[in-house]
């Protein structure tokens, strides 16, 4: 009997393992090439759907914003239909690797670790830095003033760790900005660490008149749109596309359209490519 049980357990384990291997095997899709996109007739782009104004829902349930508009530009240039797939920080690179999306324009900060996994196209199309929003009466002057202070953040943001480890803040991470801002208002945290462009737009609102952005912006890091590793022709095409956006001032135009103050990075890139 004991022997039988053992063999049965072994058999089941083997069957489970086999099922896992079988399910993984077809997942190794190859990089989408430019030709494949044209043959398919559809460009699938991963964008954010919870990050106003870069990618958010309108009340018809469609995804709109600065990045979806850029994606539409790409599809138009290729002469194919556009399909937007909402992604979140934790799955966007996986989707690209699997081939589920052909292109990712999803507020992703360009870091050397990420460049190893996906092909981040140069030049960078956008940039933002990290800052905190805090009540004026908190009187923060340096980042190190955050030591031991509860600070709200967004789950999955890369600067949470830095704020925690380097400056000693206690990060309380939330799902979205609405939740984090509510917590800030209720006093559950003393500051909110996030992208400076978002915070600037928020501080323009009279509701947040008692708050300010007291610290110096750090980590002004460029954002990268990405294609799968090995899709070199597609990357080259996207590189030209970005240069064109900077040249024509398309990004500045979209910032204005969606109510964001023109960022120094976008202005600088426009200056740089204007003459070319």
């Amino acid at each position: 009997m004991n022997k039988l049980i053992r063999s049965a357990v072994l058999g089941t384990t083997a069957a489970l393992a086999l099922a896992l291997v079988a399910s993984v095997a077809p997942g190794t899709a190859t990089a989408t090439t430019l030709k494949e996109v044209k043959d398919k007739g559809t460009l699938v782009v991963g964008v954010k759907a919870d990050y106003k104004p870069y990618g958010f829902l309108d009340s018809d349930g469609k995804i709109v914003g600065i990045e979806p508009t850029l994606a539409a530009d790409v599809a138009k240039k290729l002469g194919v239909k556009l399909e937007l797939v909402p992604v979140v920080s934790s799955n966007r690179m996986q989707f690209l690797e699997q081939g589920k999306i052909d292109l990712m324009i999803a507020t992703m900060t360009d870091t050397p670790e990420r460049e190893k996994v996906v092909e981040i196209v140069k030049p960078n199309y956008y940039s933002s830095g990290t800052n905190v929003m805090a009540p004026k009466k908190a009187k923060f002057k340096e980042w190190t003033d955050l030591k031991g202070v509860p600070v709200c953040g967004i789950q999955g943001a890369f600067y949470n760790r830095k704020t925690q480890e380097q400056f000693g803040a206690d990060i309380v991470a939330f799902k979205g900005t609405a939740e984090a801002l509510t917590a800030l208002k209720q006093g559950r945290c003393v500051a909110f660490v996030y992208d400076d462009s978002f915070l600037i737009s928020k501080l323009g609102d009279p509701e947040w008149a008692d708050y300010d952005m007291p610290l110096k912006t750090i980590d002004d890091a460029p954002w990268g749109l990405a294609v799968a590793k090995g899709a070199d022709k597609f990357a080259a095409f996207m590189s030209d596309m970005i240069k064109d956006w900077h040249k024509t001032g398309r990004i500045l135009e979209l910032e204005t359209k969606y109510g964001v103050k023109n960022t120094p990075f976008a202005l600088e890139m426009h200056e740089k490519y204007k003459g070319s």
């Binding site: 106003k52 909402p86 934790s90 609405a178």
Partner: peptide
């Protein structure tokens, strides 16, 4: 990341950008 009701609620909150709607 499936677009079911809870996900959509999060996106609606992000789009409206009004903490009082939470």
């Amino acid at each position: 990341g499936v677009s079911e009701m809870m996900t959509q609620a999060g996106r609606v909150l992000a789009a409206e950008d009004r903490p009082d709607l939470l």
